[in-house]
Design a protein around this nucleic acid. Sequence first.
DNA 1: CATATATAATTGATATATCAAATATATTAT
DNA 2: ATAATATATTTGATATATCAATTATATATG
Lengths: 145, 145
Amino acid sequence: MSIEIPSQVIFYSIERAIKEYRKFAQKNISKEIKDITVDQGLVLLFLDHYPDLSQKEIAELVFKDNASMTRMIDLMVKKQYLMRTINDQDRRRHTLTITTEGKRILKKLPPIILQNRKKALEGVTDEEIQQLQSTLSKIITNCTQ
Amino acid sequence: MSIEIPSQVIFYSIERAIKEYRKFAQKNISKEIKDITVDQGLVLLFLDHYPDLSQKEIAELVFKDNASMTRMIDLMVKKQYLMRTINDQDRRRHTLTITTEGKRILKKLPPIILQNRKKALEGVTDEEIQQLQSTLSKIITNCTQ
DNA sequence: CATATATAATTGATATATCAAATATATTAT
DNA sequence: ATAATATATTTGATATATCAATTATATATG
């Protein structure tokens, strides 16, 4: 049975697109903010919107597993972007609090992120984005059901 | 400046789609072939088509950096999927040869991969794929130029 | 209440990602 | 031919990914 070489396949393009976007986004963030990764920024943004998220819930939102999340948050605590305290309502959970330094970063992030998205989507119409979203949803459903 | 939460953004869906596809593909490969990852399979497929590829060239094809590729190939040599010898035309390069075990894996891969793609793209028309490809190309260009 | 089961987080082991520096060999310029 | 520069690969350091096992706490069931 023969097979196309992988580089001709749509999944290859999907992977390339997201990797190039991540590289591009990280580069632009690093220009303005020292010592923060795209994913650490996402964690801050989610926590800012939903302060009661558990580590496990954040992990799901950013597509990481719990072990990775533990270590990411270890680092973010060490860098003093977050404080980790035990949740008294459920002592298995940790409450994550954004520190002053974390808030400082949160103030700088949005314009950079908006600009990244804008640049990355230059020349892409709203219809195309909707179409993209719809096709990706089909793929996600196919792979997870 | 306010910002949507990341989960409403198209890049989030792109990331999710490729991660779910990878998980799905890895699961199906692991059912049939022990001890091989999606990326190791890709390396074998590329080498099968283009036996003269250098590590650096393979790295580019599978979106890894040279250091990662060195370590991946270390492992594939240790597992006896590949042999690494010095290229006498250019002694900086290594020649990578697929072993008997590697060839055995290569025989089993294509039907699994074709089936994975087929299932993941169920209900997705050729037109949608073309459209997806075209939109992703725009994004890739925007991020790399 | 006591025990079994479920959940949140951590830890250990191993692989991969990323950057910078080092090594070996090739190529180019003087 | 020699020195300077470029290229392919490796190595070290650190972060992240993934799986399985462990710990601590909560919840459910007899």
